[in-house]
Design a protein around this nucleic acid. Sequence first.
DNA 1: CGGGGATTTGAGCGCATTCAAACGCAGTGG
DNA 2: CCACTGCGTTTGAATGCGCTCAAATCCCCG
Lengths: 243, 243
Amino acid sequence: MSATVPIADALKVSCSSCNLRELCLPVGLSHDDLARLDELKLVRKAVPRGGELFRCGDRFESLYAVRTGFFKTCLGSEDGRDQVTGFQMAGELLGLDGIGTGVHGVDAVALEDSQVCVISYREIGELGQQFPQLQQQLHRILSREIVRDHGVMLLLGSMRAEERLAAFLLNLAQRLKARGFSSTALVLRMTREEIGSYLGLKLETVSRTFSKFQEEGLLAVKQRDIRILDEAGLQRLVNGAGC
Amino acid sequence: MSATVPIADALKVSCSSCNLRELCLPVGLSHDDLARLDELKLVRKAVPRGGELFRCGDRFESLYAVRTGFFKTCLGSEDGRDQVTGFQMAGELLGLDGIGTGVHGVDAVALEDSQVCVISYREIGELGQQFPQLQQQLHRILSREIVRDHGVMLLLGSMRAEERLAAFLLNLAQRLKARGFSSTALVLRMTREEIGSYLGLKLETVSRTFSKFQEEGLLAVKQRDIRILDEAGLQRLVNGAGC
DNA sequence: CGGGGATTTGAGCGCATTCAAACGCAGTGG
DNA sequence: CCACTGCGTTTGAATGCGCTCAAATCCCCG
């Protein structure tokens, strides 16, 4: 099935009126710039649960900002092996890895019914000439993605299963908190298998580790509903494991 | 021409005369643009073996392009744990992860006596306004770094020791080849421990895997001198392992 | 209410790790 | 010239964490 939806003018949105602007590309722009930035007529696009926003190998033309919903990005190698490289929630950008090659390097799949803003990369380039701040901001976002990836590399390269899951949950909670949601009660949008793929673990290990955290009183786990009971305890697992 | 700090002319270098320009930031610039780009008076800086170009936490002000030599970047977490996040050779950029936060997020250490070009990020921003191509190129480089990191994440998350080392060696060989060096005879600039840190393995495992590759006729290993005897065999390890 | 995917839990195994010891090599000083 | 030292590397043996295989259970959704 195709995720594409016929686009109507009614779906156009502007950054200046978006309640996600503090989390999204326009961060750091002056109010004036932001108003003028609305020349960048953003098109909204809906992606149903399970739908693909783009696929590995598709030509890169746009960045996508998540307005609502939740995505995963998957890297697939030539053989069957594939891996989740990230989860994206409201305000986060998708498609950054396509800039370098002109081709998307991952699949982007909606884990729930979602909406994104389609940001033409060509237009961004042109507007960047007028708004140095915007240019700068794109640099910053790209750079932060690199920093984020380094964090994942540290996780994958030197943490044990419990530490990985603890770090994952804390990161998720922190991002939810930044969006005004509860940072202790979270509903996981992804399966155990997808968590495992992201963390370099098998789904059984993820499940077992959830159970262990529950036994230890760190979490209350009911399928995909997670309540964090001892945030400090999780943090200790991540930091203090080397001691 | 602006007032300049008294820097010995001998240390000034220009991109247009650099034999690394095809591998470095100016890739894709027209000849004219390249000539004008020399306004960006690059300063060369020497870093002795073991010296730190910058440290995690240092304020970010410049990007660095490796002219000669070899670097590693290390991510250190609050506890003792630290991890090598990458190795950089001639033509590759260092410091990209500092753009987002204004602070370097890794240590950059020279693994042999090296020279770098110091590229003021402020100047890059200004020149980017005049040379859209340069701006684009920086985007591409940042994006490619993200793609590279995704590759490492795949490696760390889903490969076994042999596959990791094979992928590492092939990547190194390919980069050396692009620089005109032999792609079959390589001298490792890093220790087994640093390789292991990068690959998420212990140094003993790295050493054992080297020995195994030698027994199998894939490599000739003499300490840090490696000769690749069966490139296709290594490639098979990386790709076909899932089958 | 039934079917199918997701999750949980158990048992046994294997790969990478840990701990330990020996070796090679470069640099230093007697 | 050789002994000595320090560091990196190699190799061995035993351990353990996460994986594989398997079965039972839960839950969503038609």
